[in-house]
Design a protein around this nucleic acid. Structure first.
Lengths: 226, 226
DNA sequence: TAGCTAGTTTAGGTAAGCCTTAAAACAGCG
DNA sequence: CGCTGTTTTAAGGCTTACCTAAACTAGCTA
């Protein structure tokens, strides 16, 4: 079977399925279409093509999962993406909130040899600047055991681990408020009626909407001293 | 008029016209087609489209030149290409003969901000690893005053300046023979009937075919001591 | 000066990936 | 069981960038 160097479009589909399926394991086509900014009909078409190529499995009316082959390709793309993010951020001094979009472009134009050389140059980093783990060259990914803040309860404390999934608007907002991996968090209050979650991050109070809280992950350490 | 971030195809055309027109100033469509690995018909079509967008001027049956706008875009692409070559070669330790192809992929996926940051990281290099000058961020390019070895005559001496245009096959051959910018050259003999050119490069004898000699440039310094 | 040849252009066609609109199939609910 | 909203199929189109085959032109050569 030829690897054939999948094109940008295919890589974006695989990467997006991987992201959407991270939690429940099944990515609805509608979500896929929305994420990629295309119509649901087009997404369905493409999913069929990917299915024929053995990259995804489609359960009608339920969603899409990656096959083993598909997952390997997705992780290769994600690896390149996160390695470039490290490089752009640490060595080129580009803004934490901007490197995601730059890496999105570079990830499709990077040969495996280049990705490996970047990894070596960076000292085989384990996570990207936004805290997400970097797959190894064989496509293996260490799943972190953190939880989105949206599942934390008042009194819970710990430290921020990652932002996922990443998007410029979210990252820019977080950068502006100095919220990033490594910061300590304490959940102080959960407003009723689906209101915002009140937290202290790095000692400063913040009100996080539900959507945002679901995209910020942290490791709970309630037994630790304050 | 929108800049619209030209796509890969357009960028390849502009870059190739720039290369082919480097000497005579007019790139024949057939040469363009051959270089890009497409049919002459397709090249003609595309040249029309580029002409409508004001990127090239086409003189029928003669060839193509870049307009001012077209040249600026071409140089932006070339700048990214050569900056990546520097980075890949100097910092990632990838082979001199391989970085050209890797850079060909990256050049189309690099935002100007990233290119500028790479340039700063590298210390604003003046030339790529193959000796070709790097345009500045405004698209200005210092034209070197060297000549292809094919125009040298027996007795001429000097130093190699660059390989142009670049291609993997040529670079690989040169790498294998330790021929690269900076080496000293002396033309010892010009075989008759369009035969090879006999030279000494870095003290070692080489026989260069006409094609190859036309792609290696050097600066003649006949007044210098041996 | 007609004719040859290399280079160019026109005409007609393909494939990938996207689109819209409309109709059919289904899941999950009361 | 039937309703409602989501998902999928069907049909027809668009754009980009490529193709082949055939017609045409420029400029040289006989």
């Amino acid at each position: 079977m030829k690897h054939d160097s999948f094109n940008e479009s295919v890589e974006m589909y695989l990467k997006t399925v991987s992201e959407l399926a991270a939690g429940d394991g099944l990515a609805p086509i509608s979500a896929l279409a929305q994420h990629l900014g295309i119509s649901a009909v087009s997404a369905t078409e493409m999913v069929h093509r990917l299915g024929e190529q053995g990259l995804v499995d489609h359960v009608p009316y339920k969603g899409v999962t990656l096959t083993l082959t598909g997952a390997q390709h997705a992780y290769r793309v994600i690896r390149r993406h996160r390695l470039w993010e490290c490089f752009l951020s640490e060595h080129l001094g580009l803004g934490w909130q901007h490197v995601h979009d730059y890496a999105c472009q570079l990830e499709h134009a990077t040969a495996d040899e280049v990705a490996d050389a970047v990894a070596a140059f960076l000292g085989q980093p384990a996570v990207c600047p936004h805290g997400n783990p970097i797959p190894d060259r064989n496509g293996r990914l260490a799943e972190p055991d953190d939880e989105p803040l949206s599942e934390w309860r008042p009194g819970d404390r710990g430290s921020l681990s990652r932002v996922f999934p990443e998007s410029f608007l979210l990252l820019d907002y977080l950068a502006m408020h100095n919220i990033r991996p490594g910061r300590t968090v304490i959940v102080t209050e959960l407003a009723p009626f689906n209101g915002p979650m009140m937290v202290q991050i790095g000692g400063l109070p913040h009100a996080l909407g539900h959507e945002i809280a679901a995209h910020i992950y942290g490791i709970r350490q309630n037994d630790q001293p304050i």
